[in-house]
Simulated scan of single mutants.
Amino acid sequence: MAFAKKEIPSLKNLYKTAAIIGFVSKGIIYLVIGALSLLAALNMGGESSGTNQALLFLKRQPFGQVLLLLLGIGLLCYSFWMFLQAFRNPENISSDQKGKLRRFGLFTTGLVYVVVAFLCFYHLVTYPMDDGTNSRYLDFLGPTTLSYVFIAIGIILAIQSILLTVGVIQGGLLDQFNLEGRKGSAVIRTVGQFGFYARAFVVAIIAYFFFRAGIYTGNHDIKGIQDAFSFLEQSALGRILMALTALGFIAYGAFYVLLTRYRSFESEA
């Protein structure tokens, strides 16, 4: 299991350990979101869930404070691995335009999970005042500016959804995890494909929310994963779509947990 040749063995082990802890932590988040939403779809006592709701659920469990602390640290490890790939490039991602775009994507992913990690720490010391997500604190920008901001976010999310879908179809998205030749890689790839499709589907719905919020200036509430599941629930095939998407999120979480055993961490060079 070799990283870039210039890295000393102790650093290789540190990088790998951080990545493994990070994969498990990210997987747990999506497993909880998917499980709670699946239970809601089946009328078995769950609720449509997003990241914040998943963290609140964990907080209410026995030793919830410890769980949140460990999860926050684990997500910081995941961000560290993302930043490491973006700047140090231990696996020798190509330096062409495609490689640069991929490394920029890794950097932005790292930023996202820094925020989620600090959300874990936030819930350690506070009690939730509002389970929803609201953007009214952005109203100082003015309705016109805020509309442009929301439309821009909607465009970015729509592009992300398309790139996720194309990446799965073409195979490149899953190729980056270096599963080729590993035992059980075909099954893991199938699980990953289903999970990434579900994530792309939810991102597309959230993009629609932002477009709508940008066009109708009186509705500037930020929508997230929980609202996407609620939106599915209200559609004509609501329960079925919600259940399938929840299963996809479970698959997405399971994929990252399984990476801890199957990912090769080998240099691409």
Rank of each mutant, 00 (worst) to 15 (best):
C120L: 01
Q193S: 10
R212T: 10
E47F: 08
K6Q: 09
P9D: 00
M1K: 14
F80E: 03
I225G: 00
G167L: 04
K16H: 02
G167Y: 02
Y216P: 10
A35W: 15
A86L: 10
A254K: 02
L71Q: 02
Q97S: 12
T190F: 14
I8G: 03
D227K: 08
V202E: 03
F3I: 01
R239N: 13
T109S: 10
Q176F: 13
K223I: 04
H220W: 10
L76H: 00
F255A: 00
I21P: 05
L31F: 15
N43G: 03
W81F: 09
N92T: 12
I215E: 11
S10Y: 04
L157E: 11
F231K: 12
F3G: 01
G184N: 05
I188S: 01
A254T: 05
G181W: 09
L36H: 08
R212P: 09
M129E: 10
C77G: 06
V166H: 13
A207D: 01
T17F: 11
F210T: 01
V202D: 02
S230M: 14
G248V: 06
Y137K: 13
A2V: 14
K5V: 03
E91T: 13
I8P: 09
M44D: 07
K223Y: 13
Q53S: 14
F196C: 02
Q193N: 13
M129L: 15
G248S: 07
A198N: 06
F150I: 00
I240T: 14
L163C: 09
E91W: 12
G64S: 00
F229S: 02
A243M: 06
N219E: 15
Y197Q: 03
K223L: 13
G22W: 06
F211W: 06
L258V: 03
L68H: 08
V257F: 05
A228K: 02
R212E: 08
I93P: 09
Q234T: 12
Y208T: 04
E266Q: 12
K59V: 00
I8D: 02
S95K: 14
A228V: 02
V115L: 12
I222L: 07
A117V: 00
G132R: 10
R136K: 15
A251E: 10
A4I: 00
L42Y: 10
G167H: 04
L67P: 05
K98W: 11
G167M: 06
I21N: 08
V66M: 14
F104Q: 15
L119T: 11
R136T: 14
G172W: 10
L42K: 12
G110P: 10
R239A: 05
I153T: 11
G27L: 04
T133E: 11
F255N: 02
E7W: 14
L244I: 07
Q234F: 09
P143Y: 03
S267L: 06
R199Q: 11
L163R: 14
S230N: 15
N89T: 07
Y78K: 06
V257T: 06
I206A: 03
Y122R: 08
L237Q: 13
V32W: 04
E7C: 03
V115Q: 12
F231Y: 15
W81G: 00
K59L: 09
F210G: 01
